[in-house]
């Protein structure tokens, strides 16, 4: 039954960053490739493609998932949030602003996955300790190894009165 990709397409109807999107896709299409290739949301980065690096982390019904470990067809009927949804494109989200302020990114490749991971983490745990933040970051790799500044950025974001705060 090989080579049935064209005839075997299925419709994905999902809410992505608040917008309803409908596309015909092959079942083997990964969610990460769907977001990037079909919807043009290239902010979701693809690193290892087997669930180790965390760069492709998006929110699936509000919870962080590896989009390289899901099929696009599985998103049907669900809500996906990507890094593009964090800001309106003009003003940075306060967490992004904190990353900028604290130099929490160098090459920036891992940043979208880290931002999405932290978005869910800080929603569930609004005043974490530094160790808890470190734990939350354990599922995402930064090969520039800028972890200390990332921790500083989260703490800076949480400090009242600096930038936008919760």
């Amino acid at each position: 039954m090989r080579g049935h990709d064209m005839s075997d397409r299925r419709e994905v109807i999902a809410t992505v960053n608040g917008e309803r999107r409908a596309e015909l896709v092959a079942p083997r299409l990964l969610l990460s490739d769907f977001l990037r290739g079909h919807l043009g949301l290239t902010g979701t980065h693809v690193g290892c493609e087997h669930g180790v690096c965390g760069c492709c982390t998006v929110l699936f019904d509000g919870e962080p998932v590896r989009s390289c470990l899901m099929l696009a067809v599985q998103a049907s009927g669900h809500e996906i949030d990507t890094v593009e949804g964090l800001s309106d494109g003009k003003v940075l989200h306060p967490l992004q602003e904190a990353f900028r302020r604290e130099h929490a990114l160098q090459c920036g490749f891992c940043t979208p996955g880290i931002l999405m991971t932290l978005t869910a983490f800080l929603r569930d745990n609004p005043s974490p300790s530094r160790d808890e933040i470190r734990g939350a970051l354990s599922g995402t790799l930064c090969r520039c190894t800028g972890y200390v500044n990332i921790l500083n950025a989260v703490e800076s974001y949480l400090e009242p009165g600096i930038g936008g705060t919760p």
Partner: peptide, 11 residues
């Protein structure tokens, strides 16, 4: 697209 083609069912 990484996986080899497969049929898909979601009963």
């Amino acid at each position: 697209m990484k996986p080899a083609p497969f049929e898909y069912a979601d009963p």
